[in-house]
Design a protein around this nucleic acid. Structure first.
Lengths: 208, 208
DNA sequence: TCCGGTATTATACTAAGGTATAATTGATTT
DNA sequence: AAATCAATTATACCTTAGTATAATACCGGA
């Protein structure tokens, strides 16, 4: 079983659309999961593999745009491709503003859809890579003691050990030890690496 | 003469639209420049102040989307708001994909347009700030001698002076002097600052 | 040809970063 | 009560960064 095969989720209330898209996409090497209701997709636990969502704009109960908003508020970053039979410009603009990859008005060609999906999967791959990297770093940050975390933040802002020591009213040696442990726990071989770790997790470096 | 008043450029082949928008926007504190042809806007030299472009989709010779592409290829980053009487979903999607702030179908309310312009001007301000900062740093980079530039790049990757010296087959002292001059010329007080300068100019730090 | 910028090296020194060892204190957990 | 961890400090030592001074060499422009 190949877990690395990209997954395309399809949410469309029209079962025949689901079936047709499923066939098309499976024939192009994607794994496909279809849903006829937004809520079913939201409660579905997606694995951590490159994936995207092909989403019908008009759905019962919760429409596509609302689903998109919900995903955003849940920090779900899966790329979305909208498909719509009765869409209009404001809706397409809203979808795109919210970060959709594409918005296809029905009828659309297979090529248009497949191109969009290809792009979405690429983006998903990049997102997953970024996410796993950040979570790895955050896991390391969690192992820091409060003092170490504080020293970490000041160090990446460019403050010298002696100044940190003075600011906190402790000895230089204490800070040096904290600093050393920060490097160890963060698994940073150099200052530059430490700074890049901090940046990736939104910890400000320099005076930005 | 207030040079800091934001400028809104309007490109629309309909003179009455130009006039109406000009009146509306001037009454809201913007400076306004109108054009009836894309080429007139392109050849106009805009000053370095917060500004945005209100752009009609349908224009003679060069339509709005083509103008947008041209600006992109010229690295013109001015935020664009499309207005359109006969647009469709694909065109609006294309515009948004290419980075437009908004795409308003005529008729639109004054509020919609003003909101979009407000957002565009904010973005423009951020762009200008970013751009001036980067150009300031790039100016400093230009003062570096070839050797200094090389050392700069290796330093921000986290390489130690002695390793740089070995790699280049020169003495440690030589590298230290280059390094010192890099800090001077780049006006960096700390390593973190030097790294943030490098990052802003796309010079890779660490192993990214 | 002389000057200035670049590149190089050496010696010597100061400052800052980093490690090792050892010890103390306080809080929390077992 | 004992053990563990975080935080602290001191002493000592080593490495790396950074500066000052002085000297050599090369190259291109005035």
């Amino acid at each position: 079983m190949n877990n690395r095969k990209p997954v395309v989720y399809v949410v469309d209330d029209d079962v025949s659309v689901c079936r047709a898209l499923s066939l098309l996409l499976k024939s192009h090497g994607f794994k496909v999961q279809t849903f006829t209701r937004a809520i079913d997709f939201l409660t579905f636990k997606h694995p951590q593999v490159p994936s995207c969502l092909v989403l019908d704009l008009r759905l019962p109960n919760m429409n596509g745009l609302a689903l998109q908003e919900t995903m955003e508020s849940q920090r779900q970053t899966m790329p979305i491709i909208f498909i719509s039979g009765h869409g209009d410009i404001p809706k397409s603009v809203k979808a795109m503003k919210a970060g959709a990859i594409d918005f296809l008005a029905k009828p659309f060609t297979k090529k248009k859809l497949l191109d969009a999906i290809m792009q979405a999967i690429l983006k998903s791959k990049a997102q997953i890579k970024e996410k796993t990297e950040i979570s790895k770093i955050k896991r390391r940050i969690k192992t820091l003691s409060p003092r170490e975390l504080e020293v970490f933040k000041l160090v990446v802002k460019g403050m010298m050990s002696k100044n940190i020591a003075f600011k906190r009213g402790v000895s230089l040696q204490t800070i040096k030890i904290h600093r050393g442990r920060v490097m160890q726990k963060m698994q940073a071989k150099t200052m530059t690496e430490l700074i890049s770790f901090a940046e990736k997790c939104g910890i400000p470096s320099s005076r930005r």
